[in-house]
């Protein structure tokens, strides 16, 4: 398990309202916990480590929890998990009650464990912890290898280590075979790709998207030009660099000026036909679905090569 997912300290400090709240919550949790024990006892060997009611309030932990939790164990996922533009499990997420990350609504769900991201609203996380609820903030994954660690970490938190181990094992095997295919392409024959997202935001080297690009057999323009960090990339610089492939995001419903630049005539000319690609929900989180993104992009590369 990774050392990064810090487990919350239990509520401390005597004689405060928080303490009273924490004690009440603890009592209620014990009740729920016992109910959970009775329900799950036959199927679960490591029962003491298995939280019965888990709420996830971050898209990436939503995806891992939906994959790993036992039936009935996951009580709620974030409402963002239902958005097919960012969530590869949008349909499955619709089966769960959604939450919007508010401390009050999550407290009322009486969870034994709350999964959050490191960037989750610190006010909500702090309040839940003062109320005596265990909140684990799972770190962001920026490397393909780390995905297996994260699967095992969340699996252990959910008391589903055996299932997590199987998922991690399968993931690493698929990753190795995809990387093998990419390694067969000589470095000087790799096509150059670059990201161009709303507001002209482009992704640097220290990102999961960079790893996906490399594993699919592309070179990353940012790496060639020495741009390590993500940030605004002026359109005219991108046009002058002239990458072989421009990766844009799918646009949301409604309209926005931020996304309008993705349809700029200069960019459209650059990303015409096989030179354009749209990243999908599989790209967003460091979860096993990233391999779907690698696979699909590698397929696009093969079609580009065949088209020559």
């Amino acid at each position: 398990m990774s050392h990064r997912g810090a487990v919350s300290p239990s509520a401390s400090g005597p004689g405060s309202e928080t303490m009273v709240g924490a004690r009440q919550a603890a009592g209620r949790r014990l009740g729920v916990f016992l109910t959970g024990l009775l329900a799950l006892a036959p199927s679960l060997p490591a029962v003491a480590d298995t939280p019965a009611r888990v709420v996830s309030m971050n898209l990436c932990t939503d995806l891992l929890a939906m994959e790993l939790a036992a039936p009935g164990q996951l009580v709620s996922v974030s409402h963002i998990a239902r958005d097919p533009l960012v969530s590869p499990l949008a349909e499955a997420a619709a089966q769960y009650p959604g939450n919007r990350g508010g401390a009050e609504e999550i407290f009322l769900m009486q969870p034994d464990l709350v999964l959050a991201g490191v960037w989750t609203d610190p006010v909500a996380v702090g309040m839940l912890r003062r109320l005596g609820i265990e909140v684990v903030q799972v770190d962001v994954v920026t490397e393909l290898d780390e995905v297996a660690d994260r699967v095992r970490q969340v699996g252990a938190l959910l008391g589903q280590s055996a299932r997590a181990e199987a998922v991690a094992h399968d993931y690493l095997a698929r990753l190795a075979s995809l990387r093998e295919a990419a390694a067969a392409i000589p470095a000087d024959a790799r096509r150059v790709a670059e990201f161009y997202y709303p507001n002209g935001y482009s992704l640097g080297v220290n990102t999961m998207s960079h790893e996906i690009l490399r594993a699919a057999g592309f070179a990353h323009l940012a790496e060639a030009e020495g741009r390590a960090y993500s940030g605004t990339l002026p359109l005219e610089k991108l046009v002058l660099s002239g990458p072989d492939l421009v990766i844009r995001s799918e646009t949301y419903a409604g309209a926005s000026r931020s996304e309008e630049v993705l349809g700029h005539p200069a960019l459209v000319a650059l990303a015409a036909g096989p030179h354009g690609y749209r990243s999908t929900a599989d790209w967003i989180c460091g979860v096993p679905q990233v391999l779907t993104a690698v696979d699909d992009l590698a397929g696009h590369r093969a079609r580009m090569e065949a088209g020559e």
């Binding site: 709303p198 507001n199 949301y252 419903a253 409604g254 309209a255 926005s256 000026r257 931020s258 996304e259």
Partner: peptide
């Protein structure tokens, strides 16, 4: 009220 998450940040534009 727009379904587009970027729209609200564009009031300034």
């Amino acid at each position: 009220l727009s379904p587009n998450p970027f729209a609200a940040s564009e009031i300034v534009f």
